[in-house]
């Protein structure tokens, strides 16, 4: 992983993510300025099961694992996002998310997520699409 990501590289990177696919380039620049770039070392916890007040994360680089009561449920990589369910429902996360190698994310604080989604309806639509896919996968798994 590169030691440093320039703002322009970051904009170019997120332009390729499904979540931000409909944004114009000034809007993408706005996203990079609005979100905060954060880095986690291997083994760091990003979300903590049961602990309120966490943020919304979009993975720019690296990998993380979702753990429920210590048991692995899924792996997340570049372009994936997490933390939004807890924010939308205003409940603590029901899983830990732990970096499995150096992880770089864009982070938006929980209290700012609603306003961001309302101001960027295309991002909200893409998020809804991703949620629909997750729901479909979960239903398929149950049946």
């Amino acid at each position: 992983m590169a030691g440093m990501t320039s703002q322009q590289e970051l904009i170019d990177t997120i332009a390729g993510f499904a979540l931000f696919a409909d944004l114009t380039s000034p809007q993408l620049e706005g996203v990079v300025h609005t979100f905060e770039e954060t880095a986690f070392a291997e083994g760091d916890r990003v979300l903590r099961q049961g602990l309120s007040g966490s943020g919304f994360f979009v993975i720019v680089d690296g990998e993380a694992v979702i753990l429920v009561d210590g048991e692995e449920r899924a792996r997340l990589g570049r372009g994936d996002f997490f933390g939004e369910v807890s924010i939308l429902l205003q409940e603590p996360p029901i899983a830990d998310v732990v970096a499995t190698r150096p992880l770089r994310c864009l982070m938006l604080a929980g209290p700012r997520v609603e306003a961001f989604l309302v101001e960027h309806p295309r991002v909200m639509f893409r998020m809804l699409q991703a949620q629909a896919r997750r729901l479909r996968a979960a239903n398929r798994w149950r049946s």
Binding site: M1, G3, M4, A39, A41, R104
Partner: peptide, 19 residues
């Protein structure tokens, strides 16, 4: 390693380089 526009070093909770 560094992060963000200010190129802050990535650090542990005790302010030690993570790398």
């Amino acid at each position: 390693t560094t992060v963000g526009a200010s190129r802050l070093p990535t650090q542990t909770a005790w302010w030690e380089s993570t790398t």
